[in-house]
Nucleic acid binder design. Structure first.
Lengths: 211, 211
DNA sequence: ACTTATTTGTGCAAAATTCCACAATCTAGT
DNA sequence: ACTAGATTGTGGAATTTTGCACAAATAAGT
């Protein structure tokens, strides 16, 4: 298949496939067919094959896909064949939860630096070992530690400022947990994790269902 | 405009609009044009107008939209003119963070019951006041307190079981924080909050950008 | 070797979504 | 009343995304 712009939805699905393949791999499953994988992921099987077709031919007709091989390829495609260095901004409840989750995060991501504005927190060590830096040090520390992804877990009111600092420090990707649309220059990759929006979707669905 | 199936994306955007309208309302802004709102939300202005057109005519040509009025209408559309009762399953780091966030959640959502499997946690009171129930009591408590939305903040391995319990208790909507695709019967509304998938998207973007 | 049972990869049509462009409508100024 | 300037609401084109349906390819049994 020729080069074409790859849908974001495809990348999102690849990530979901990789999750299942990882599970299958650990269960010792050697081979999986698109139908089976599709069923597990709640996705159309043709969709899976088409998603993969953007990047090459990874299956064997009449057989299916070798789980480990496909997992390896998808990880390579997603760029997970390296460890991404992240900075965490905002060590509140959510930030702490993310740090605690760190061990559970699938291989490939690591918080190398953490920041907060609160002088009471600055200088303390979080349970996972990192020392909390003041925001003022962001640019220096980010550059020193080669942070590639910034994670914003500040209150909404501080999020835009946090984003600006990350940007001026040269970070090109931001994972934003604050319930606000960040204003960023062209070329920045921003992903929002926004459960209030998801809740609103549920509320709408329930409202419609009941009339 | 006639009745037609409303895109999920439209509902998601309505939620985002409502967030800005709330901010504008608090700033005392009376009137907003779709162009301005679009710019703030990073969305095409025609898209906003079309989204709204699914539900009626809320603006005044040559003028724009009355902020408070439009906010009210969107909230009504989304079903936020009531308080939704939620149950939280899993009082770990993430669950605790969600409870702590509770005061910050936009009006309309409330955790009326919380659950955990850990006997050491059961019976204790969380900072926001709720007593942690054992999972066994889920069905009873959910029915007693009229829970409408279940929030799963358990480890991935326990999430499917948690979902099943919620379903059998009659809950029709689930907000799932576990990194797993829940298998649920037709008619259930499930929304996933999945930051590992978002991270993978960022990793892919960065990988592509650098070649 | 041939046949049957699978399952992938993909051309193409269908469906969904986005967005342009403009008529319709409103305000304000003269 | 009329004109100028602004902004909504929307038909429809353009684009994107999905998924059917089938040829191509593989394995296994006879």
């Amino acid at each position: 298949m020729k080069f074409s712009k790859i849908p974001t939805a495809t990348i999102t699905r690849l990530s979901i496939y990789s999750r299942y393949l990882e599970a299958l791999s650990q269960e010792g499953v050697k081979i999986i067919a698109s139908d089976k994988l599709a069923q597990k992921c709640g996705i159309n099987p043709a969709q899976i094959r088409k998603d993969l077709a953007y990047f090459g031919e990874f299956g064997i007709r009449g057989v299916g896909y070798f789980v480990k091989e496909l997992l390896f390829e998808i990880k390579r495609i997603l760029g997970l064949n390296k460890t991404w260095k992240m900075a965490l901004l905002g060590i509140g409840n959510l930030g702490s939860a993310l740090l605690a989750h760190q061990n559970f995060i699938r291989q490939g991501y690591e918080f190398v630096a953490v920041f907060d504005v609160d002088p009471a927190k600055v200088g303390r060590r979080v349970p996972s070992g990192q020392i909390i830096h003041p925001m003022e040090e962001l640019e220096t520390v980010v550059k020193e530690t080669n942070v590639e992804i910034g994670v914003i877990a500040t209150p909404a009111a501080k999020a835009q400022m946090a984003a600006l600092r990350l940007i001026s420090a040269g970070v090109k990707a931001i994972l934003n947990f604050a319930p606000i649309q960040l204003q960023v220059p062209e070329g920045m990759a921003v992903e929002n994790v926004d459960f209030t929006v998801k809740l609103d979707n549920l509320a709408y669905n329930l409202t419609m269902a009941e009339g």
